[in-house]
Design a protein around this nucleic acid. Structure first.
Lengths: 153, 153
DNA sequence: CTAAGATGGACAACCAGGTTGTCTAAAATA
DNA sequence: TATTTTAGACAACCTGGTTGTCCATCTTAG
């Protein structure tokens, strides 16, 4: 019963399982209240920080929407705004210590989840799945405009 | 470079590739303007039709929200409301001929996309991927509350 | 070197899609 | 038969997105 119909749903379901378990574990480790899309935002901000305009471009939303998202994450203590000494117009958005802690923990948790899958499937089979997926998906891992892409009637 | 970080994103990317190609092809075949989530709604409606209350329950949203979605799809010509002879309160929502056409074409397109993946990866490897995904994901394929699940800051 | 244009960010008004609350008609039940 | 439950419509509101406008600042053309 391998209809083409099952494949996309299994892929999505796999993603969902991993993300759900990530957030359960993050909540246990002191980061409750985060939503799946926050990970995308953190990644889009990057290690060197960014600006509202640039963040909006990366996320595929307007700079105003990006500004609101930044404001929300700032209130949660995950990002902070700083001045740019080279350009008085720009406000650089950076991850706070708490934001970085969240990223580090996420990486560890993802590694642990991958280990669990490897224990069930075998490391060889899991590596094969990853290799195969690489063959049929674009190089660049991050398509942070995903939330935008999916929503909307 | 198999960090646990890559796996979920590859799964999501695979899903996205398939869905994007599905909608490109659907647009070519006379169904433009459909969004990824419409497929979920069609599936949630099912072959026998449903009601706004039941649809809301399946999609994980309020009956009012389901009603609005139904209204939008009705305007697009994909569903229609009919009376229930056994219960004058209920308005049964059913797929129109156009809605069914869309579902049939989607099934064919998904089959074709799976064939393309099989040509790249080999039928055996693809079947292995599907089998492995089944081992690490829930039985029930449909979690139509996905849009709801992902969104939200 | 200055004047014109481009850019980053804030603010306001609006829109879409979700929410809850209230209401009516019809069905189920005590 | 009287009461309670249910399906659906309508209204008010909330959130997170949109565009439009504005100002301050940087960049660039003359």
């Amino acid at each position: 019963m391998s209809t083409g119909f099952e494949l996309p749903l299994r892929l999505l379901l796999g993603f969902r399982v991993l993300i759900d378990e990530l957030h359960e574990e993050l909540a246990r480790q002191g980061h409750p209240g985060l939503r799946p899309m926050h990970g995308f935002v953190f990644q889009a901000i990057g290690p060197d920080g960014t600006t509202a305009v640039e963040l909006g471009r990366r996320l595929g939303v307007s700079k105003q929407a990006a500004g609101k998202t930044i404001g929300a994450l700032e209130r949660l203590g995950y990002v902070e705004r700083g001045e740019d000494p080279d350009d008085a117009r720009r406000k650089v958005v950076r991850l706070t210590e708490r934001g970085i802690d969240c990223l580090v923990r996420s990486a560890h948790i993802f590694d642990g989840l991958r280990d669990r899958w490897a224990a069930v499937l075998g490391e060889e089979r899991l590596a094969a799945m990853e290799a195969d997926l690489r063959k049929v998906t674009p190089e660049e891992l991050f398509r942070p405009d995903f939330p935008q892409w999916f929503g909307g009637h």
